[in-house]
Design a protein around this nucleic acid. Sequence first.
DNA 1: TAGTGGTCTAGACCACAAA
DNA 2: TTGTGGTCTAGACCACTAA
Lengths: 242, 242
Amino acid sequence: MARLNPKSKLPLYHQLYEILRADIVDGKYQPGDLIPAESELIGSYRVSRTTVRQVLDLLVREGLVYRQRGRGSFVSHRGLEEGLVRIVSFTEDMRRRSFDPGTRVLSAELIPATPGIAEKLEVRPGEELVHIRRLRLADGEPLSIEDSHLVHRLFPGILGRATLTASLQDAARDYGIRWSSAKQTIRAVEAVSELARLLSIRARSALLYIERVSYADNQVPAEFLRIHYRGDRYSLYADLRG
Amino acid sequence: MARLNPKSKLPLYHQLYEILRADIVDGKYQPGDLIPAESELIGSYRVSRTTVRQVLDLLVREGLVYRQRGRGSFVSHRGLEEGLVRIVSFTEDMRRRSFDPGTRVLSAELIPATPGIAEKLEVRPGEELVHIRRLRLADGEPLSIEDSHLVHRLFPGILGRATLTASLQDAARDYGIRWSSAKQTIRAVEAVSELARLLSIRARSALLYIERVSYADNQVPAEFLRIHYRGDRYSLYADLRG
DNA sequence: TAGTGGTCTAGACCACAAA
DNA sequence: TTGTGGTCTAGACCACTAA
């Protein structure tokens, strides 16, 4: 059993958090398993109950653990989930879920805006857009296809850059653009054969489909994004208020 | 200044949370304002520092407050509506979309909690639940199948009532339950044949699948809901912030 | 230097689950 | 009855900010 180091710069609760989190992620405790009781952690790691509960609060908030009064604390059965509320980059999202993110650029070209996309981006039809299609991977397995449409006028020369595999968030910063908000619509659709092939699934499999218009800080629409996620590998998560 | 009631069923931290939250939402403290220091809250409300910090943790998690060591705790600028999606009843949802809502109760019975559902409702496996399956219609056409699981202990005798077609929200009010929050997960799945038949679509069609745990005002899980929406007739919408 | 939030201790009593 | 998590107290020392 790992020991805590009282002289470390890292607070005790943080050290214990890392230990328990690793035990869960690595599978030492399986979903549904009881984790050691608070009293047991107090004894094993020589910390107070406050500190132990601070650690468990973190794990509960993260969705890794749930508690039942009188019974104990258990490892949750949860998959890949994304927040519905904040704009989260793919890379950040994957890191948070302890998945190894990967990206393959399938195509990148200039195209004229179709009437439908022009309306969402509030530009005239035919306006020049940058279309980038990327395959996203989680732990090396296909997860989603992203079709990003940027207003070229706002990102001049972006196709010449080497950053396409990196986050567009970073690229945008180089152009002085900060994302302020986004509107998105979520649907379930069937995979057409081309998408099925790219995602290594059967045709007509269920996909989670997201359309998102992202706005720069001056409320100017700058990107129209379409994402097709494999239904078997991805889910969205949201907290609602009454 | 409001007082806390030590004899209340509501814990002290929850009472203080409601007070501070109301002060912020009602504008008593404006965005950017300092809220009273922890030491001040301790004195004003006669509670320990642990309790005060528990309250502030809740407000910080909710995005209403941020803290700076050595300076104080401040009201966030981007708090209120942002990020907080409201719980919307089926009826309200349909009206907003200009559809005529309809409901047919397919079954209503008492069942023991399966381990999976018990975990989400934080009850012991086997605890008695009310399972109500309803077909939802929009303009007379099948839209979704809802499987609601209520903790029977909190809704004794609800099966004997005539309100099953009406909103469960209303029924809950009769039991003195106010919904405070919910957590939901959204996926895309394929329709198994039974669901396809009920929804008048082909088997394996794409469905938008939502799982929701709803919490009563004391943070007690009270309902576990599964909804299968026809992918061709329903979509979700969300505003995101940067 | 005075005041703030960050971390931590060692207790206590309670409600609830399970045997 | 025993063990669990839920709530709460009264302290303590620390790191940081601002005057």
